[in-house]
């Protein structure tokens, strides 16, 4: 009896997912375990969004098929099938949007420190829409007649204009933050070049001339933001993102030019 109790106390249980099987040779690990890398939440949320979007596309194809059958036959059965497919597709769409907004909000964290006020403003807006889509996940399945469904769709179409504006404005703000951070890095580097004792003092006047292009970068970034702040029509979304993207690309081109100029200056005046 005592032997049985001692056996139970000092033996370790064999787990189903035991990583060290008894048949494997036991070796002392000699390598130093590397520190756990910081999890990239954006990539995880992005994968989840792509998964949800794939489900939405399948549901949408099913809805289109049911709608086509209903348009052809017009029976009560086909109408019910089309209604159910609509509910299913809208729910899948809401899930996809919720996942996308979560990933977008997480993405904004990357360069938030450059412009915390505006970035947080967009993150709050995104959170609001995330909550709305979360709420609709329980609202939409409870709709049980065509009239309520049509009312919900009309309401969503009005909200969708604002949602798109929030999304695209956030994307612009995120890229503006990145370019602004790069500009700050370049300006910091310019100061380092000026004060570096290994670089001749003649370089200082050349570094100072780069301020003109820095102003051009700032102007392009401001223009990119300004496109998103124009008021939208009530019935149709005016997509400003392509125009903003052009300004952002222009700003990035200026940054590349400034960086290349700085490299030339350093190479010319550096005395090892």
């Amino acid at each position: 009896m005592w032997f049985f109790v001692l056996f139970l106390l000092f033996t370790t249980p064999a787990l189903a997912q035991d990583i060290t099987p008894s048949s494997a040779p036991q070796e002392t690990p000699t390598t130093i375990p590397s520190p756990t890398p910081a999890p990239n939440f954006f990539e995880q949320y992005k994968k989840d969004y792509l998964f949800q979007y794939d489900i939405y596309q399948q549901s949408y194809l099913k809805y289109v098929d049911k709608k086509r059958v209903w348009t052809r036959y017009g029976t009560i059965t086909t109408q019910k099938e089309k209604f159910d497919a609509s509910i299913e597709a809208i729910t899948a769409r809401n899930k996809a949007f919720k996942a996308y907004l979560l990933a977008l909000r997480t993405m904004l964290d990357d360069y938030e420190s450059v412009n915390p006020t505006n970035t947080e403003k967009y993150q709050i807006e995104i959170s609001k829409w995330e909550s709305w889509f979360e709420e609709q996940l329980s609202v939409v399945p409870s709709i049980n007649n065509e009239k309520d469904l049509i009312r919900w769709v009309d309401d969503f179409k009005e909200k969708y204009i604002v949602i798109q504006q929030t999304i695209y404005s956030s994307l612009v703000q995120h890229e503006v933050n990145l370019r602004q951070l790069t500009l700050e890095n370049i300006q910091s580097l310019g100061m380092d070049i000026k004060t570096n004792p290994q670089i001749q003092t003649e370089s200082q006047q050349w570094v100072s001339t780069l301020a003109i292009k820095s102003d051009l970068v700032t102007t392009s970034l401001n223009n990119a933001i300004a496109f998103g702040q124009r008021s939208q029509s009530q019935n149709k979304f005016n997509n400003f993102y392509p125009s903003s993207k052009l300004e952002l690309n222009q700003a990035n081109n200026y940054l590349i030019e400034i960086s290349a100029d700085l490299k030339l200056i350093v190479n010319k005046f550096f005395k090892p």
Binding site: Y56, S86, M107, V153, K157
Partner: peptide, 30 residues
């Protein structure tokens, strides 16, 4: 140290942000 900063800047300028929103049909249910 300056070279390291240049590499960081180059990495930033090469970063292309591409996270388009979902393309959906807002008329589902009509």
């Amino acid at each position: 140290e300056i070279n390291a900063k240049f590499e960081k800047i180059d990495q930033n300028t090469r970063t292309n942000i591409q996270f388009d929103p979902p393309q959906i049909d807002p008329d589902i249910g009509l």
